[in-house]
Simulated scan of single mutants.
Amino acid sequence: MGLTAALSAPQFGGALASTVDFSGFKNTGQPWPLRDSESFEYHSKAVGDKMAVGVWSPPKGLPHTPADKNPPLDVVYVLDASFALGITATICMLQYADLINPGFAQVLLVGVDYPIGQPNARTRDYTMADQVPSALKDRFSTTPETTPGGAGKFLTFLEEELDPFIRSKYNTTNKRAGILGDSFGGTFTFYAFLRQSKLFDRYWLGSPGIFETATDYVAQFEALLKGELAHPTKMYLSMGSLEINGGVGFYEEMGRNYNRLVNALNRTPNDKLAWASKVYEGHTHTSVVAPALSDALLYLFRK
């Protein structure tokens, strides 16, 4: 589907783009694959690369659905969506079926990843330039698609290209969006919070890949907490205990910086930030994803 439109940005505190050309979004005609989903490909001018976008909305007829049967949906961006979009949609469906603790928000999940056959560029798009230690940077810098440092361009893609398209095509609320990221995805959600993006007000920082480099990003985080945040925000942080002390050096480095983040939050309360954190006993960098994502969704989106 070719789509061209000009529109004002959603009403959540300032225009992200006043006039946007959506002709680059092409409907693939296939689901993500995921029931109740659509799939798009788009060549981002900001990133300079083609992106895959999967959009999932809850089916009609859910328990507790408003009488109009078509309520506007809160927007939630899901990184690493080739696997995470399906997990997230499943957790949402389970929450909609909960008769004991009802009240999970109706959400439109927007998954972002890369087309099949194209290099996975998450190490480029989810990271800051001086955020990856030299040992890992050398490993990732063998191709332009994987070289770290593109988080700023990726944030521009989300704010100025993808989000206006999503809100023009789907029935969404005028609220800011949530964003869910794990590992380097958690690095990006951390970055978006540091930048105080006008788009997001709910963040999952799952096992964020924050390392010890020449730039102390955790110190920047704490300095930000001492000031005025752009708008009220919720944040959920998570990590597996075996990341922190399981004997893998770069995971343990991430664990030390995770503890620094939580300590900064405890030392520096901010009236505009509500947060929760949890270390999952016995879990690794991979096994922690599903339980932590479930808890993050409940904390961030249960009414």
Rank of each mutant, 00 (worst) to 15 (best):
V20E: 00
K278I: 04
S18N: 13
S241Y: 12
N171C: 13
M51Q: 13
L293S: 06
I179A: 00
G152Y: 00
R139T: 12
G246W: 12
H285I: 05
D295W: 07
L108H: 03
L85S: 10
F154Y: 14
F83P: 03
F12Q: 02
T147S: 10
E252L: 05
S8V: 08
T90F: 03
Y280T: 06
Y280V: 09
P291V: 10
S277T: 12
G24T: 10
A5W: 14
I166G: 01
M239V: 15
R256C: 12
P10H: 06
G181T: 07
M93E: 14
T127A: 00
T156S: 15
P115T: 09
T286H: 09
T142K: 13
K303F: 02
L3A: 09
G13E: 08
A292S: 15
T19H: 04
L194A: 01
S44C: 12
K137W: 04
V53K: 02
W56A: 01
S197D: 09
K45S: 12
E228L: 12
D68V: 12
D138P: 09
A97M: 12
F40E: 01
S197E: 05
G150M: 04
D163V: 05
A276K: 11
S241I: 10
I91Q: 06
R260Y: 05
W275T: 02
D138K: 10
D80G: 09
P148L: 10
F193Y: 13
V279E: 13
G185C: 03
F83N: 07
Y251N: 03
D80S: 05
Y42W: 15
A105P: 00
V75N: 01
S57K: 11
W32G: 05
L162S: 07
W56G: 00
F40D: 00
L99E: 10
V47K: 00
K45N: 08
S168V: 08
A15P: 10
M51A: 07
F250R: 02
S238H: 05
R260S: 09
G282A: 13
P33A: 04
W204F: 13
Q220G: 14
P269I: 12
Q11E: 13
L155H: 04
G206E: 02
Q131D: 12
F184A: 01
S23R: 14
T233M: 06
S57V: 12
E41G: 02
N70T: 06
V218E: 08
A274Y: 04
